[in-house]
Computed example of a mutant assay.
Amino acid sequence: MDLAEYIQLVFTDYTLRTITLGTAILGAVTGMLGSFAVLRKQSLLGDAISHAALPGIAIAFLITGIKDSNVLLLGALISGLVGTFWIRGIMNKTHLKSDTALGLILSLFFGFGMLLLTFIQKQPNANQAGLDKYLFGQAATLVESDVWMMTLVTGSCLFVLLLFWKEFKILLFDADYTKTLGFNTKFIDVLITTFIVLAIVLGLQTVGVVLMSAMLLAPAAAARQWTNSLGYMVIIASVFGALSGVVGTAISASQNNLSTGPVIVIVAGVFVLISFVFSPSRGLLFKQIRLLKNRRDLKLHKTLSFMYNIARTHDDISHPHAIKILNNFQGYTTGTLQKLVRKNYVRLEAGQWSLTLEGFKAASNLYNQQDHKDE
């Protein structure tokens, strides 16, 4: 399937259109909320919440006996919120750090959820449960009502972010200062955590328990490499998340036997890799380029500095004695000297290097700047 055919199918095929819209909206809202989880150093929060939601899905099925997505996701939401507040309780009431609390709740709830799934498989109505799709996701089960629900949650999340933007921003960077300003930090923290739980629960049907944390973190981690502004980071993360959903769905639809959820996560990982390498400010490529440039400049300054020290002890920098001393020194390379020649700081005549008047002045300025720093 080529690109033109895929775009045509998006507008004509109900299932493909529903999945594409659903994954795009899911990627946008998880990228938006994931920015706060990443900046608050709560990267494991998404993993813990998604795993904590599994027993809620199983319990909801055991109570109702029906495989209704809304009922199952409601159970997942309740279970996810319980797990989240247990994490907060462990951190506040004990001396355990956040990573320990997150890992503890993750393993406890996921183990309990797997136990319940094993029990359900032995029940007479096990074949109609289909709860295993929540482990790795099954985007093909998305229907129009699911997309509308995702749209409603995304709109609500955006409204709350705009309404409490100042409070979220202050809490994110200085919680103690937020308290001194009179803001209810507990309410703000609970509010944003609840929306994160809600977004994760909505994504379980598409991406699954195991991979949902990647949808929360990958777009935000990629966006962080491109900006220092919280506002721009939220926007970029939403765009990366939405693109991951659309591109992942397109790749999955164009090939046979490719699960949509894992492909979406792989595409999001590609965005992270590209950002880590090619980001102008933090990218590894540009960091290496800047490092090489700094090393080159340092060599030039060292060479110029040595030549200046020799030249300033002589009344005439073009005197044969001064030139002889310069050419007998082995501490600089021919390549460095040639670069100084191109800058007109050094001249090469008859195979002999000598410092020009312009080079002498440039070296003198370097020394004056260093003297001011020392003062």
Rank of each mutant, 00 (worst) to 15 (best):
residue 288 Q to T: 12
residue 270 V to N: 01
residue 257 N to Y: 11
residue 237 A to H: 01
residue 223 A to D: 03
residue 279 S to A: 15
residue 269 G to M: 02
residue 273 L to I: 14
residue 277 V to E: 02
residue 219 P to D: 08
residue 276 F to E: 08
residue 263 V to N: 04
residue 252 S to F: 06
residue 257 N to D: 15
residue 281 S to I: 11
residue 294 N to M: 12
residue 281 S to T: 14
residue 245 G to E: 10
residue 286 F to R: 05
residue 249 T to H: 04
residue 306 F to Q: 09
residue 275 S to I: 12
residue 284 L to G: 01
residue 248 G to D: 09
residue 281 S to V: 11
residue 253 A to W: 15
residue 266 I to C: 09
residue 230 L to N: 00
residue 250 A to W: 13
residue 249 T to A: 08
residue 280 P to A: 09
residue 253 A to T: 01
residue 239 V to E: 02
residue 264 I to M: 12
residue 264 I to W: 02
residue 219 P to S: 01
residue 264 I to P: 06
residue 272 V to H: 07
residue 222 A to N: 03
residue 279 S to G: 07
residue 306 F to H: 11
residue 224 R to V: 03
residue 285 L to W: 14
residue 220 A to R: 03
residue 221 A to V: 08
residue 286 F to Y: 15
residue 268 A to I: 05
residue 238 S to R: 02
residue 304 L to M: 12
residue 281 S to R: 10
residue 256 N to F: 13
residue 252 S to E: 11
residue 225 Q to N: 12
residue 301 H to I: 10
residue 249 T to Q: 07
residue 271 F to N: 08
residue 264 I to L: 07
residue 245 G to H: 09
residue 292 L to A: 10
residue 303 T to P: 03
residue 223 A to E: 06
residue 282 R to A: 10
residue 247 V to T: 12
residue 302 K to D: 06
residue 228 N to M: 00
residue 279 S to W: 11
residue 284 L to S: 15
residue 237 A to S: 15
residue 263 V to S: 04
residue 246 V to F: 13
residue 225 Q to A: 13
residue 268 A to W: 07
residue 303 T to K: 01
residue 249 T to V: 08
residue 234 V to W: 05
residue 236 I to E: 04
residue 282 R to K: 15
residue 231 G to M: 09
residue 230 L to V: 05
residue 271 F to G: 04
residue 239 V to M: 09
residue 235 I to G: 03
residue 302 K to W: 02
residue 265 V to G: 00
residue 226 W to E: 02
residue 220 A to E: 11
residue 247 V to Y: 05
residue 292 L to D: 05
residue 249 T to M: 10
residue 273 L to Y: 15
residue 256 N to D: 15
residue 225 Q to L: 01
residue 284 L to E: 08
residue 221 A to I: 13
residue 259 S to A: 15
residue 305 S to C: 06
residue 221 A to F: 08
